[in-house]
């Protein structure tokens, strides 16, 4: 299995870069609110509940924030790329100035192809595995299946909160465990 180096500019298998995503979704900066329900999945009351859950999350993890995007994207691979692209290109207008998207966690839902994805910024990358984000989505799966999107979002954030609290405590007790999370840069890969 080939590993992408920390400083790799493109995927060593397919050569994918953010520029490819820019070509697909647009290269300019996108101004969004943290809860961008472009698909119109949430009613007013549900929207308030979800926003309250997002606020609670921010209170508990002052460094982090969660964002939600709902909309039709085409296919699952696009959803994954879209998450990467949105975290890099979006400007969340309801975030305090100076906030970095590297501290963001994006939950993307495509109601047409009925797929959900979760992407995290660089800040959480050492502390979260792909399986962790999968567990959060799995917790929301049954609610999404029934069309109860608000409940599914809140459940996913609850699971994420529980997980991050645990990881925060672990990082506090064993900081070295997470510093070696990513492999050290290899000179030849950096050169590539």
């Amino acid at each position: 299995m080939q590993k992408i180096h920390r400083a790799a500019s493109a995927c060593p298998q397919c050569g994918f870069t953010l520029a490819d995503a820019d070509g697909q979704f647009g290269g300019r900066e996108l101004r969004l609110r943290c809860l961008a329900d472009t698909a119109g999945l949430l009613r007013h009351e549900e929207r308030e509940r979800v926003e309250a859950a997002m606020r609670r999350f921010r209170q508990r993890f002052p460094q982090l924030f969660v964002t939600i995007y709902t909309g039709a994207l085409g296919e699952a691979a696009h959803l994954r790329r879209f998450g990467l692209w949105l975290l890099n290109r979006a400007n969340f207008v309801d975030m305090p100035p100076g906030s970095s998207n590297a501290a963001g966690i994006l939950l993307t839902i495509d109601p047409v192809i009925k797929t959900a994805g979760m992407s995290v910024g660089y800040l959480l990358e050492p502390f979260l595995e792909e399986t962790d984000t999968f567990e959060c989505l799995a917790r929301a799966h049954s609610y999404f299946l029934e069309g109860r999107y608000a409940d599914g979002m809140i459940k996913a954030f609850d699971q994420l909160t529980w997980l991050l609290r645990k990881r925060s405590q672990q990082a506090k007790r064993h900081p070295r465990r997470f510093t070696g999370h990513l492999p050290p840069p290899a000179p030849q890969e950096v050169a590539r």
Binding site: H5, S119, Y122, L182, P185
Partner: peptide, 20 residues
Amino acid sequence: VEPRLGGEHAAGVGAVIAFA
């Protein structure tokens, strides 16, 4: 964390789930 794939804030760590 060193940036990858040209991403300034994220490089696509995350999972996808289908609920069709």
